[in-house]
Measured scan of single mutants.
Amino acid sequence: CHSECLGNCSQPDDPTKCVACRNFYLDGRCVETCPPPYYHFQDWRCVNFSFCQDLHHKCKNSRRQGCHQYVIHNNKCIPECPSGYTMNSSNLLCTPCLGPCPKVCHLLEGEKTIDSVTSAQELRGCTVINGSLIINIRGGNNLAAELEANLGLIEEISGYLKIRRSYALVSLSFFRKLRLIRGETLEIGNYSFYALDNQNLRQLWDWSKHNLTITQGKLFFHYNPKLCLSEIHKMEEVSGTKGRQERNDIALKTNGDQASCENELLKFSYIRTSFDKILLRWEPYWPPDFRDLLGFMLFYKEAPYQNVTEFDGQDACGSNSWTVVDIDPPLRSNDPKSQNHPGWLMRGLKPWTQYAIFVKTLVTFSDERRTYGAKSDIIYVQTDATNPSVPLDPISVSNSSSQIILKWKPPSDPNGNITHYLVFWERQAEDSELFELDYCLKGLKLPSRTWSPPFESEDSQKHNQSEYEDSAGECCSCPKTDSQILKELEESSFRKTFEDYLHNVVFVPRKT
């Protein structure tokens, strides 16, 4: 048989008469490798580009789960590009990614509803959504962080984005990388972005840091009482949809009607710091009717980097990364020049730590249904340095008659930039024990000054392991946590139920 035959053949030295091919099969003959313009397919066939392209389009058009959109890589027609490569849609070739590779997620039936953290986790790592997304989240724990972890990498949506009755959302900033909504599939009414009845939605994105392009379709905003109209108009300008909307697409009466839409800028007039305090004062603000001013709200939190936005980490279910302080308005003076500047002394802060701070007014709604208010920009203030805590785990070892090696770990709280350490030492008198000992005694162990690591005695271990207080009263049991108490109650309830079950099964009433 021919060298490319495997198993047997019907005619000697003829690659077209093989029972099976050793390498690849091409047009009725066995070959060692697939010549151009053919590609290896499933490690035994040679196919042309049209064959591989037909497989790709067949799966793409069917949208069946589990099928493969075949691509070409290293002269092979394979189910998908290997790690580190992405497909070129024009020629199906796998090309190296520039940075992290995109991950295209194809949605069944063309859309997916995100109504819980669990459903959001199914899209973790996706960068391109081939379909439409509907966000409908009523509640949950730590929602802002969970949504950002699972949806934060999405850069492109081919269909539309719909935010509907998501009472738990305060902001859409968890879509931190969303840059493009194509609108290839539109919501009824030709809408590519749809926001309806979101009672706590206050911000779409921080438009000073976020760009969003909507290729096709219109915007729809109705019944978002805490979303200011200025935020919607800003989205029109940034996304390129200005002029597409009709009169009733953006409701003037049901958007922002319960919001404090600040239209003035508060400026800080005085800032002073110490290692654990920050004193702030800002310019006074009074609405047209000074009785509408209820006070100020001061927001602050630790910020290692200057990239904080107002609604980071917030949701309507209680999660809030900001510390909020309510401040009463100052006494009002008739003389504008003698107006008191409101302020606040922030206490209990960490030394040498940068804080993000902003302040906003708290006002009631005027009778004319106009909203007044003022808010400052987010500023960054760093507390002063102070003395560091003591170095940890000092170790001293003498390696000769004239040297001592000293080692330690950095302090747990540096409280500033540590530039150097101060080492103090003092000579001590020799131990009298060394002169009084009889060095001729056998088995004498000389006193040693070398360091030995501390260890816990058996008594201390027994005390720590004991669940009861000892007789001397030195140790006591740790208080039980809520989960331990709940577990004990469940076990007790189970024992009672099981005992009742045994009584009912074992003891049967005697027939009379």
Score class of each variant (00 low, 15 high):
Lys103Gln: 13
Lys103Asn: 03
Cys105Ala: 15
Leu107His: 14
Leu108Glu: 11
Leu108Pro: 14
Glu109Thr: 09
Lys112Gln: 11
Thr113Asp: 15
Thr113His: 14
Ile114Pro: 00
Asp115Tyr: 13
Asp115Ala: 07
Asp115Trp: 02
Thr118Pro: 03
Thr118Ser: 04
Thr118Leu: 03
Ser119Phe: 04
Ser119Leu: 06
Ser119Ile: 04
Ala120Arg: 02
Ala120Gln: 08
Ala120Met: 12
Gln121Glu: 02
Gln121Leu: 05
Gln121Asn: 03
Glu122Asp: 04
Leu123Arg: 00
Cys126His: 01
Cys126Pro: 01
Cys126Met: 01
Thr127Pro: 04
Gly131Leu: 00
Gly131Gln: 01
Leu133Met: 08
Ile134Met: 06
Ile134Glu: 03
Ile134Gly: 08
Arg138Asp: 03
Arg138Glu: 06
Gly139Pro: 01
Gly139Lys: 14
Gly140Gln: 07
Asn141Gly: 11
Leu143Gly: 15
Ala144Leu: 05
Ala144Asp: 13
Ala145Thr: 07
Leu147Met: 14
Ala149Ser: 06
Ala149Met: 10
Asn150Thr: 08
Ile154Phe: 02
Glu155Ser: 04
Glu155Lys: 14
Glu155His: 10
Glu156Asp: 05
Ile157Asp: 00
Gly159Arg: 04
Gly159Thr: 01
Leu161Arg: 00
Leu161Asp: 00
Lys162Val: 10
Ile163Phe: 14
Arg165Ala: 04
Arg165Pro: 01
Ala168Arg: 15
Val170Cys: 12
Leu172Trp: 00
Ser173Ala: 12
Phe174Thr: 04
Arg176Asp: 15
Arg179Thr: 13
Ile181His: 01
Glu184Ala: 14
Thr185Trp: 05
Thr185Val: 10
Leu186Glu: 06
Leu186Arg: 09
Ile188Ser: 11
Ile188His: 08
Gly189Pro: 06
Asn190Thr: 12
Tyr191Val: 07
Phe193Asn: 00
Phe193Gln: 01
Phe193Lys: 00
Ala195Pro: 00
Leu196Phe: 07
Leu196Cys: 02
Asn200Asp: 03
Leu201Phe: 11
Arg202Ser: 07
Arg202Lys: 06
Gln203Tyr: 12
Gln203Ile: 03
Gln203Ala: 14
Leu204Asp: 00
Trp205Arg: 03
Asp206Cys: 07
Trp207Met: 12
Ser208Ile: 10
Asn211Cys: 08
Leu212Asn: 01
Leu212Ile: 13
Thr213Glu: 03
Thr215Val: 09
Thr215Ile: 15
Thr215Cys: 09
Leu219Ala: 07
Phe220Gln: 04
Phe220Lys: 14
His222Ile: 03
Pro225Glu: 04
Lys226Met: 04
Leu227Phe: 05
Leu227Pro: 00
Cys228Leu: 03
Leu229Ala: 14
Leu229Tyr: 13
Ser230Trp: 03
Ser230Pro: 02
Glu231Tyr: 06
Ile232Cys: 13
His233Ala: 02
Lys234Gln: 11
Met235Trp: 08
Met235Gly: 03
Glu236Ala: 15
Glu237Phe: 09
Val238Ile: 14
Val238Ala: 08
Val238Tyr: 14
Gly240Ser: 06
Gly240Tyr: 04
Thr241Ser: 08
Thr241Val: 14
Thr241Asn: 12
Lys242Gly: 15
Arg244His: 11
Arg244Ile: 10
Arg244Val: 13
Gln245Ala: 14
Glu246His: 10
Glu246Tyr: 07
Arg247Gly: 14
Asn248Leu: 13
Asn248Gly: 04
Asp249Pro: 11
Ile250Ala: 13
Ala251Leu: 10
Ala251Gly: 11
Ala251Glu: 08
Leu252Met: 11
Leu252Arg: 12
Thr254Val: 06
Asn255His: 12
Gly256Ala: 03
Gly256Asp: 06
Gly256Ser: 06
Gln258Leu: 08
Ala259Ser: 05
Ala259His: 14
Ser260Asp: 14
Ser260Lys: 03
Cys261Lys: 02
Glu262Phe: 03
Glu262Cys: 11
Asn263Pro: 14
Leu266Asp: 00
Ser269Ile: 08
Ser269Asp: 10
Tyr270Thr: 03
Ser274Ala: 08
Ser274Gln: 05
Ile278Pro: 00
Leu279Arg: 14
Arg281Ser: 13
Glu283Gly: 05
Glu283Trp: 03
Trp286Lys: 11
Trp286Pro: 03
Trp286Tyr: 07
Pro287Arg: 03
Pro287Phe: 04
Pro288Met: 09
Pro288Glu: 13
Asp292Glu: 03
Asp292Phe: 05
Leu294Ile: 10
Leu294Asp: 11
Leu294Ser: 04
Phe296Ser: 06
Met297Phe: 03
Met297Thr: 15
Phe299Leu: 07
Lys301Pro: 00
Glu302Phe: 13
Glu302Val: 08
Glu302Arg: 15
Ala303Lys: 00
Ala303Pro: 02
Ala303Leu: 05
Ala303Ser: 09
Pro304Thr: 08
Pro304Ile: 13
Tyr305Phe: 14
Gln306Arg: 13
Asn307Pro: 06
Asn307Arg: 06
Phe311Ala: 06
Phe311Met: 07
Phe311Ile: 08
Asp312His: 10
Gly313Leu: 05
Asp315Gln: 04
Asp315Ser: 13
Ala316Arg: 06
Ala316Pro: 14
Ser319Thr: 05
Ser319Arg: 07
Asn320Trp: 13
Trp322Asp: 02
Trp322Pro: 01
Thr323Lys: 10
Thr323Glu: 15
Thr323Asp: 04
Val324His: 11
Asp326Arg: 01
Asp326Leu: 02
Asp328Lys: 13
Asp328Arg: 13
Pro330Ser: 11
Leu331Pro: 07
Leu331Ala: 06
Leu331Ser: 11
Arg332Trp: 09
Ser333Leu: 10
Ser333Lys: 11
Ser333Val: 11
Asn334Cys: 15
Asp335Trp: 14
Lys337Tyr: 08
Gln339Ser: 06
Gln339Ile: 07
Asn340Glu: 14
Asn340Asp: 13
Pro342Met: 10
Gly343Met: 15
Gly343His: 13
Leu345Asp: 14
Leu345Val: 15
Met346Gln: 05
Met346His: 09
Met346Leu: 11
Arg347Pro: 10
Arg347Ser: 13
Arg347Met: 06
Arg347Glu: 08
Leu349Gln: 03
Leu349Gly: 03
Lys350Pro: 02
Lys350Ala: 05
Pro351Gln: 05
Pro351Lys: 05
Gln354Pro: 09
Tyr355Phe: 05
Ile357Ser: 09
Phe358Ala: 12
Phe358Trp: 04
Phe358Ser: 11
Phe358Thr: 12
Val359Leu: 13
Val359Tyr: 02
Val359Phe: 02
Lys360Ala: 12
Lys360Gln: 15
Val363Thr: 05
Val363Pro: 09
Thr364Asp: 07
Phe365Arg: 15
Asp367Pro: 05
Glu368Asp: 11
Arg369Glu: 04
Arg370Leu: 05
Arg370Pro: 12
Tyr372Ala: 02
Gly373Asp: 03
Ala374Trp: 13
Lys375Tyr: 05
Ile378Cys: 03
Ile379Pro: 00
Ile379Leu: 10
Tyr380His: 00
Val381Leu: 10
Val381Tyr: 08
Gln382Arg: 08
Gln382Val: 03
Thr383Pro: 00
Asp384Ser: 05
Asp384Gln: 04
Thr386Arg: 07
Thr386Val: 08
Asn387Asp: 02
Asn387Ser: 05
Ser389Asn: 13
Ser389Pro: 02
Val390Asn: 14
Val390Pro: 12
Pro391Met: 03
Asp393Gln: 15
Pro394Tyr: 13
Pro394Asp: 05
Val397Thr: 06
Asn399Val: 13
Ser400Asn: 11
Ser401Arg: 15
Ser402Asp: 07
Ser402Thr: 01
Gln403Phe: 11
Gln403Gly: 13
Ile405Trp: 06
Lys407Ala: 00
Lys409Val: 11
Pro411Ala: 04
